[in-house]
Amino acid sequence: MSEQPILQVRHFNKHFGPGCGHCSRPENRGLEGNYCPVCGTVYACDDVSLDLYPGEILGIVGESGSGKSTLMKCLYFDDAATSGTAFIQDEKVALKNVFQLSSQQKRYIRNHLYGMVYQNPMMGLKMNFSSIGNIAEKLIAAGNRNVQDMEAKGKTLLEHVQIPLSRMKEMPENFSGGMQQRVQIAKALSNNPPILFLDEVTTGLDLSVQANVLDLIKKIQREWQISMIVVSHDLAVIRMLADRTLVMLDGSVVETGLTDQILEDPQHAYTQQLVYSLI
């Protein structure tokens, strides 16, 4: 594993609300969970730091409302960070805090450096476009104008995620949930991004379909050596996929370490609860 992170996040915060004297000073913060009872501010992510290394899968686990999906949305620029820094190892944006880049520079990152697979496929796919059309849309956003190239790339990707080419002109709205997720993965991979975000991608799928999607993610990571951040409330998913894991609770990281280490010797009471629920 390279010693230089491909993505480095430091002191990331995302707050919903104005903050007040009761909650805005960390040393004097009186919160109920991640909520200020005085002014109503929600500290969705509070002083989160992480490193993602080339070729690794970083798992982020936590219950609903722990801040893990908010972190993903801000990293992918679906939402704005309140404060903090994030740096990507790429010559075009090296040494630049990506949270403070122009919208044009953020588009470059989304189109060339990032892939995103959402929990709800409707957020990642245009349901009234064909499957191969969804992949072409991402390629066009990155500047590709060669129709033959795009069709060849689209076919290769759909085969890779086990979508029959006989259905490539079909719209994803006709597909099962598992097939929609696989089309989303193909679209996210279309520009060979070095970083892939996966947000609760197996939630709501049948167990056998979940297993197929998880196998596909592992296969892609093994063959393409893509760095991934996988968010889940399910420690069994994280156990199967992640090299290292962050545990989040009420917007904060409460434990971090090698996944095996966390499973075998959890330190925080919340992590212990998660691990014991697996046994």
Rank of each mutant, 00 (worst) to 15 (best):
Q267I: 15
M240W: 08
L101D: 06
S130D: 07
I109Y: 10
K96I: 10
I220A: 08
E63C: 05
D47H: 01
M171R: 09
I109K: 04
D265A: 14
S64F: 06
V237I: 12
Y108P: 07
N144A: 14
R145N: 11
S166L: 13
G19S: 04
G115Q: 10
H15M: 07
C23T: 07
V42H: 01
V201Y: 00
R182E: 09
L278H: 05
L95D: 15
K96M: 13
Y276L: 12
K187D: 07
I60A: 02
G65T: 09
R110I: 14
Y114D: 01
K153S: 07
K92A: 10
N120E: 13
Q221N: 15
Q210V: 11
E173I: 12
I60N: 00
A80R: 11
P26F: 06
V38W: 01
P5Y: 08
P193T: 05
G17T: 02
N97K: 06
I229K: 00
F16Y: 14
V209F: 09
Y53D: 08
T256K: 08
E56M: 07
L198T: 11
H268Q: 14
L246N: 06
V61F: 07
S190D: 04
N212T: 15
E137T: 12
V237F: 01
E223L: 14
V42A: 00
V183K: 03
S208H: 12
K219W: 03
Q148K: 08
F16H: 03
F129G: 01
P266F: 13
R10W: 02
F87L: 14
K73N: 13
D243T: 10
P5M: 10
L198S: 05
Q225E: 14
M248Y: 09
N174C: 05
P37V: 02
Y114A: 08
E170S: 08
L165M: 10
A94D: 03
S277Y: 00
I238A: 12
L249W: 03
L263K: 08
G19T: 03
E173Y: 11
G124D: 10
I6H: 00
T82A: 05
E151M: 14
A86W: 13
Y118F: 15
Y53L: 13
G251M: 05
L235I: 15
G30V: 10
F12Q: 00
A44N: 00
L52G: 03
N97D: 13
P194S: 03
V247R: 05
G30K: 13
H268L: 13
Q184I: 07
I279S: 13
M1A: 10
